[in-house]
Design a binder for these strands. Structure first.
Length: 243
DNA sequence: ATACATGTTGGAGC
DNA sequence: GGCTCCAACATGTA
């Protein structure tokens, strides 16, 4: 569930509830969500991996972390973290992080950093990257302040596609690889969205959790990389290490 | 079936 | 202050 494109799908699913009154809020969240009872959903937005359910001045921010899930007009066995009751409809969230945000979201979020946003600004990402020359490429792609919405799958697939080894230093990348990294982060995220909608995401993975390189067929290397300590899958033959 | 994993946060320790 | 490490959270999949 967690990466940016999946949140876009969820946003689309929740859009029909815009304008609806939330009659009751229940669940085991410790946030004081019941104060929102009686308010109408003004807008459903996302920022990277954040789902934003906007009311008047308050917004519910949901983050699905690793195990979060949701059901619309259905329930799971486990207790809901948050349930929004809208008359006879209900939206249930499980095992996710809930936070209430007060005030203007523009003060909280840099929309230009969200790879799924129409306001995504590749030049801004490039500028951020130039400020972090010692960062490993794998870490940079997972930086939510630069590539909001990019997760470990997108990271591995992007690096495979642009033929850059995950431990490459940003400052050592040739200009065309740096721009390819920024461009592909967005391009593959939208490809992810299309494949996810069609239910064919996994079968289109070229590197993530794969055994063999999709190009040269040699065994892929699986290695925990970078300060973020996430699993990388890469081809030691076709992906270049820039040091 | 045991371990790992689409992720983040807060606190400890240095 | 800033960095890294660790635990915690809680569930589907291999």
């Amino acid at each position: 569930m967690p990466e940016g494109p999946s949140l876009v799908i969820l946003k689309e699913q929740l859009k029909p509830f815009t304008g609806r009154k939330v009659t009751e809020l229940t669940g085991n969240t410790t946030e004081p969500v019941s104060e929102l009872a009686g308010e109408r959903i003004k807008e459903i937005r996302t920022w990277g991996k954040h789902l934003l359910i906007c009311f008047g001045t308050t917004t519910i921010r949901m983050h699905f972390l690793l195990f979060g899930s949701y059901r619309i007009n259905e329930r799971r066995e486990s207790p809901a973290r948050l349930s929004l009751h809208l008359g006879k409809d209900e939206i249930n969230f499980y095992a996710c992080s809930v936070k209430l945000i007060q005030g203007d979201l523009d003060e909280v979020y840099d929309w230009e950093a969200d790879v799924m946003s129409e306001r995504w600004k590749p030049r801004k990402a490039t500028i951020h990257l130039r400020d972090a020359p010692k960062e490993q490429a794998a870490d940079a792609l997972l930086d939510q302040d630069i590539f909001s919405g990019v997760g470990n799958i997108i990271k591995n697939e992007v690096l495979f596609r642009i033929r850059v080894q995950p431990e490459s230093r940003i400052g050592a990348l040739p200009t065309d690889r740096l721009s390819a990294l920024v461009r592909e982060a967005r391009k593959y995220s939208f490809q992810f969205l299309e494949w996810k909608k069609k239910g064919v995401l996994k079968k289109n993975w070229l590197a993530h959790r794969k055994q063999l390189c999709a190009r040269c067929k040699i065994p892929l290397t699986k290695k925990v990389t970078g300060k973020r300590k996430r699993q990388s899958y890469f081809c030691r033959n076709c992906q270049v290490l820039y040091k």
